[in-house]
Amino acid sequence: MHTYGAIRYYQFGNPADVLQLIYRRVLKPGAGEVLVRMTARPINPSDLIPVRGAYPHRISLPCIPGYEGVGIVEAIGPSVDPSLLGKRVLPLRSEGTWQERVVASSELVIPVPNDLDDDIACQLYINPLTAWVILTEALRLQPGDFVAVNACGSSIGRIFAQLSAILGYRLIAITRSSRHTQELLSLGASHVIDTSDANTPSIREAVLSITEGRGAAAAIDSVGGADGEQLAYCTCTQGTVISIGLLSGQPVHWGEVSRASKTAVQLFWLRNWVRDASVHTWHDTFGLLIDLIQQNRLRLSRISERYELAQVKQAVIAAEAPASKGKVLLVDADNKSII
């Protein structure tokens, strides 16, 4: 009986404590499905926050984590185009990617061009797609509008900086460290607010100064808690705040904040866009992002460390280390090396 390794958790908690390596029987793909042998998967905050129990109402235990990754089509089911065999693809909208094999819908896998290596391809989903959809669909912005984004030293913050420049918005990047300032400016941010600088006024005062008292047209919060609340008061009257994450683990009472700040608040869930997107839109949107990467107009995070699935506990600790300087990948045994 052929088996393969997978990471699973049976209860919520600290990822380094609750994630376990188990073995499963290899399944044959059904009609319209492909079997993908995974080669690389990034570790994102969005992978780990559910493990901690932030969304128990929509996570069924036991669960295999991992929203994105890249692999090679190893087998196909009935009615699947044989040309997919041996192709590198993103097996998205399937079961968790933190396993050696993933069964996915053949019409939803995203083919990966030969000139995009696994390090780039495995990061193409969560952060780039979230940033693209927010800036092009969720927000009603005009060229030149200011957009304030917190946690901007993160992977998605760097993507917001680049896409804002591409799309013509002016990004106010909010960070907690001066080490991000020059990089964000070089990537396309219009201004950087470093909250670790003792000379920096409040975020609201800094944003109002940059925008000549008007406030930003929109703000994007990845942190929640007090940081998210502060961001709402940085927008202009009738401005928009979009909440996309909860890095602090502290929720915001957005209804109260919206009334007090006279700001419209939207809770953005990528899964809702994914659910409603047609197959055509799904592939077209990835095509746009891949084009930007191939044109060297959009760059994704560098890879700092690689771990095998069996080393998942060390991997998640490394991914959350404050000094981490890039993405941590979970890779197959033949692709493990520390950069």
Results as ranks from 00 to 15, higher is better:
30 G>C: 07
31 A>I: 14
32 G>D: 05
36 V>M: 06
36 V>I: 15
36 V>P: 04
37 R>H: 15
39 T>A: 11
40 A>Q: 09
40 A>C: 03
41 R>G: 04
42 P>K: 00
42 P>W: 03
49 I>V: 15
53 G>L: 01
54 A>R: 08
58 R>L: 12
58 R>K: 13
60 S>Q: 14
63 C>G: 09
64 I>N: 08
65 P>G: 07
67 Y>K: 13
68 E>I: 02
69 G>S: 08
71 G>A: 09
71 G>C: 08
73 V>N: 00
73 V>K: 03
75 A>V: 09
77 G>V: 12
78 P>S: 15
78 P>M: 12
78 P>R: 14
82 P>T: 11
83 S>V: 13
88 R>F: 04
91 P>R: 06
93 R>Y: 10
94 S>R: 04
96 G>S: 04
96 G>F: 03
99 Q>F: 04
99 Q>G: 10
101 R>H: 13
103 V>A: 05
103 V>H: 03
103 V>F: 08
104 A>V: 07
104 A>P: 07
104 A>M: 01
105 S>H: 06
106 S>T: 08
106 S>L: 03
107 E>A: 13
108 L>P: 02
110 I>M: 09
110 I>C: 10
111 P>F: 05
113 P>A: 10
115 D>T: 14
119 D>C: 09
119 D>E: 13
120 I>W: 05
123 Q>N: 11
125 Y>K: 01
127 N>C: 11
130 T>C: 09
130 T>D: 06
136 T>N: 11
137 E>N: 12
137 E>W: 02
138 A>C: 11
139 L>Y: 00
139 L>C: 02
140 R>F: 10
144 G>I: 11
144 G>V: 09
147 V>G: 04
150 N>L: 11
152 C>S: 14
160 F>P: 05
162 Q>T: 00
163 L>C: 06
164 S>Q: 00
